[in-house]
Amino acid sequence: MKVSIITATYNSEATIEGCIKSVLSQDYPNIEYIIIDGNSSDYTLSVVNAYKQRYSDIIVISEPDNGIYDALNKGIKVATGDIVGFLHSDDFFNSENTIKNIVKEFSKGKVEGVYGNLDYVNSKDSNKIVRHWKSLPFTKKLLNRGWMPAHPTVFLKKEVYDKLGLFNTKFKIAADYDMMLRVFSDESLRFKFLPEVITKMRVGGASNRSLKNIITKSNEDYIALKRNHLDYPLWSLVLKNFSKIPQFFRKS
């Protein structure tokens, strides 16, 4: 199976090379790597184009966009893989075997999605784990408890996006949560939890950079819960926020 990995980037000269190397170091041979750049004004494109000249499987699109979800949607539209996943420009895969292990789970039987665990790491020292997001095998009742898989670890069949659509760009911060609710609420789809760390994410994401963003995130989460017809959206939101607390104490 062919895997499309999408990276959205904008002025990421400090981290983009590590992200690219993480993809290129994978020991799975059939990878299409798509980089969507928002018309960066620093040296991001210089780094990206240097790798594109050496690796024919890298697709680069650089143009102004309307934010990260618009960029990810562009990537999904041009992806030709059977499986689609994301790796943000500040992030990297946990090991060289990550994609191979994910594809193995898809190969075992009928499954439309595979997801795993996520480590948040210190922005200066990537060996220092700040927060460990340990996921669970999926059951639909988990959604009402505010549960969601760590979105950067979720790999879906391309046909899922063909069926359910792209990220809703009306959301500024919570389009990934809205997408996860949309996907995991579809009872025709089946998912497999891979109990290993898939992605390491440097701290400092858009959703937690300021109090204003935290408030915006919570408001958008509530809207997403209502849009996707969760039974008790306000209670689910409360549980979702409280469920994050143990992640700061759990390291494995």
Rank of each mutant, 00 (worst) to 15 (best):
P149K: 02
L24F: 05
E63M: 11
N213Y: 12
S135P: 02
I36N: 02
E105M: 14
L156G: 01
K212F: 15
D90Y: 12
V154I: 09
Y10A: 05
K2Q: 15
Y10E: 14
F86L: 05
S25Q: 13
K110Q: 11
K134I: 11
A206P: 08
E196C: 06
N49A: 08
I20L: 01
T9Y: 02
L136E: 13
T15Q: 03
L189C: 05
E63L: 15
H151Q: 13
F106M: 07
I76F: 01
M1F: 04
G38I: 06
S40H: 09
A175Y: 01
S236W: 02
Y177E: 11
K226I: 10
G18Y: 04
N66W: 06
R190V: 05
D186S: 02
T216P: 08
L189A: 02
P149C: 06
N117R: 04
I129D: 04
F155I: 02
G18F: 09
I102R: 03
S126G: 09
S210N: 07
F242Y: 08
H151I: 13
R209Y: 13
S218I: 13
I6W: 03
F193E: 01
E112G: 11
K163M: 12
K52I: 04
G113N: 01
K128V: 15
S22D: 03
P149M: 01
K77R: 11
R131Q: 12
M148L: 14
L211G: 10
T44Q: 05
I245C: 06
K158V: 04
A175P: 02
N127A: 10
S4T: 03
D176A: 00
I129Y: 05
K158R: 11
G205Y: 08
